[in-house]
Each structure stands twice: as structure tokens, then as C-alpha cells.
Computed example of a mutant assay.
Amino acid sequence: MAQPNRPLPEEVLTALQRGSLFDAIKLLRKSGVANLAEAKALLEAEARRINARKSTSAHAAAPSASSPQRAPGAWPPAATEALRRGHKIEAIRLLREHSGLGLKEAKDAVEAHAQTMVPTVEGLSPRDGLSPGEVPRTSSVVWWLVIIAVIGGAAVYHYFLRGSV
């Protein structure tokens, strides 16, 4: 069984840093340190640690001077409104300006936020009492007018049919 505190061989770490998880697993298996499942779990954990270090150092090294850093949970209302209008690129731009995120992080955040939004029909809002997918009902006045027209037509037909006999 693999030792969690035991350092990984240098060639395995090099393969991981290149982004080649498959090669790293092969090299670790070849060294006899772990079986396939253990090697995969161990290297995936190490890859997460490497990626976390890279993203932490990238955010610390390059703060955005043009846009102030805001709270991580803050979401600009203008970006939500842009998403409602179907302007995904504008929402990404607004989020980047608001939070200082990178392009990929902002795109991922906007796509995740779009999945949580309630779709609305133009002119209607969720407050109108409609369930998602429910179509607004037509007015009952239209149906009454149709019924009256059918009855009136039947009465006129009956009157003229009786009158001609």
C-alpha cells in the first residue's frame, strides 16, 4: 500500500506537472509503490494540490489594478440582468470587472449561475404565479364569445331552415 507521507519519485512529479496523469500513474505503478487504484487516488490528490498552488500563486502574483477585489460571494446584479436578456458575454465582462476574476473563472461562474436561474417568459416574472413551464391561460371572455357566436349561428340557421319549409 502507498505511503501518504512518502515523497513521489521525481519523474512522476514531472509527469504530473506536465499535466499527464496517465503517464504519472504508469511511472508510479512501474516503481512498485502502489497498485492501480492507489496510484490513481494518490496522484489525483497530488494533482489537485499542484493546481491549488498554481491558482493561489497566480491570484496573489497578478492582482488586477483596474478593478477592485470584492467579496467572493458577491454577484453583480447587472450580470444577472445581462443573463436574463441572454447576453452571456456581457455578464462575463461585468463579473470580471466586479470581482477581478480571470476569463475562465468568470465564464465558469456565469455558466453555473445561469443553471440556477429560473427561466422566465418575456413580460412575465416568477411572481406572476406561474409554475416553470406553465403557459398563461387565455381569458374566459374569449370562450364566452365563441359560445354565443355558435348559439347565435345555430339560432339563425334554425330560423331560416324552418322558414323555408
Rank of each mutant, 00 (worst) to 15 (best):
E38F: 10
N5H: 10
P63G: 02
I148S: 00
M1G: 15
R96V: 04
F22A: 10
L83Q: 06
R49K: 15
E10C: 10
G100A: 04
K88D: 13
G133T: 04
A91P: 03
N51L: 06
R18Q: 14
R18N: 11
G73R: 09
A60L: 09
A114I: 02
V142S: 04
P4T: 03
L13A: 00
W143H: 03
A149R: 11
A61E: 14
S57V: 11
A65R: 07
P63C: 01
K40Y: 03
K88E: 15
V165W: 02
A2E: 13
Y159G: 01
L101E: 08
G152A: 13
P63W: 05
E134T: 04
A154T: 02
A37W: 02
E97M: 08
V110I: 15
E10R: 14
R70K: 03
A91M: 08
V118H: 14
S139M: 00
L13Q: 12
R18H: 06
E10L: 15
A82K: 06
E46T: 15
A91Q: 08
P63F: 01
L16G: 08
P4F: 08
P126Y: 00
V12F: 06
K88F: 14
H113T: 12
A58L: 13
A82W: 07
A45P: 09
S66E: 11
S125M: 02
T14M: 07
R162A: 10
P9T: 07
A24C: 02
E38R: 04
V141W: 01
P77L: 02
R49Q: 14
D128V: 04
V110M: 13
K30S: 09
V118Y: 12
A45F: 05
F160C: 07
L101M: 15
W143K: 13
P72W: 10
P76I: 06
K104E: 12
T116A: 13
V150P: 03
R53Y: 12
E10F: 14
H59Q: 15
R162P: 00
A62H: 07
H113N: 06
S131G: 14
A78F: 09
A78V: 05
G163C: 01
I148M: 04
G73T: 13
V141M: 05
A60K: 10
R48N: 06
R70Y: 08
S20N: 12
A2R: 07
E105K: 09
V110T: 04
V142G: 01
G123Q: 12
S20D: 14
V146I: 02
G163T: 05
R85G: 10
K104Y: 08
V150L: 11
T56Q: 07
A58Q: 09
E10M: 10
V118G: 12
W144I: 00
A74Q: 15
A74K: 12
G152T: 01
L42Q: 13
A58C: 03
V12M: 05
G19W: 09
L28Q: 05
E11D: 04
S139H: 06
W144V: 01
S57K: 09
E122L: 09
